[in-house]
Amino acid sequence: MTDTGLTRGTTGAPLDPKAEKDWFELAVAAALPMAIALLALFFYIKAPVFMTVNNWIAISVQVSALMTISIPFALLLMAGKIDLSVGSTLALCGVVAGLSFEPLGITGAVLLTLAVGTVVGMINGVFVSSLGMSPIIVTLGTLTLIRGLAQWLAPNPIFGFPEEFLVIGYERVLGLPILTWIMLAVIGLGVGVMALLPIGPQIVALGVNKRAAFLVGLRVKAIGIGLYAATGFFVAVAALMSISRINSAPAGTLGIGVELSVLTAVLLGGIPFTGGKGSVLRVVLGVWLLGMLSNGLILMNVPTELSLMTTGLVLIVAAALDVLRARRS
């Protein structure tokens, strides 16, 4: 798969003589970008302020943390694994950062937070890849365990972080918020890894056929642990992004339900629950669709309940499209 385009591993190349490259296939491929375009148009008509540069920058800030987690999460899912503990890990990392600013200074606190995230990911990875346990069970366990740990470390919400740290949350560089830049960097990294590095196809190979991946000599365990560690690392990054924006780290509520938003975004991005294919750029679109949806509905003064229902509906429609496509082939 030498293309860096939107269809990595999913459909064949245009040259492919046997593939049914008919209008249906194209329509499914175009569904996500089209949905975004139509939705943007709809919001623009209903609330013209939606279509302003500032609002789009605001959306990017709102989705920045979600995006930062979704990209490594997408790779994990492509490899046929899953991490349900991302929300709790986010809380733990936020709490660790909040508690360590005073004793360690900003640099120390940031490094410690990143280390904690990475280690949590590695622990998940060892249970799943080395011991061969079910990813859902392991990370469902750590989801609860780590949330408890975070609350135990910080029974009361921590707030009031150093000003030098908070600039991450509001400062702009070259016209864009720092948070947006971080998000763009993570996207670039994800796209680059999958498109240019030899590890890209190896990750997908794990999701396509684990036994074959082992037999052809891929480092199945190392790749698995590495993916979990990377997810943990970027969850820590997202935690720092989040707490810098809200200037507090409430152990009980920080990152609640993030695993579900991430999963929704990634599935919207066309990665099947069973892994084995997917494209980073499509996941970016999936995250963006979610962000746009919540932003636009707020601008239209739609109540939160309705907004939640819409999100759920969008996911089901996307999944239905995928099933339809699978049926046809």
């Binding site: 798969m1 591993g9 190979a205 396509v208 056929n209 036994r211 991946a213 037999l215």
Partner: peptide, 15 residues
């Protein structure tokens, strides 16, 4: 045990 069904031929060869 050996084929990556959804992979292109070249990737199947070189994985």
């Amino acid at each position: 045990q050996s084929l990556f069904a959804s992979f292109s031929a070249v990737e199947n060869l070189l994985v």
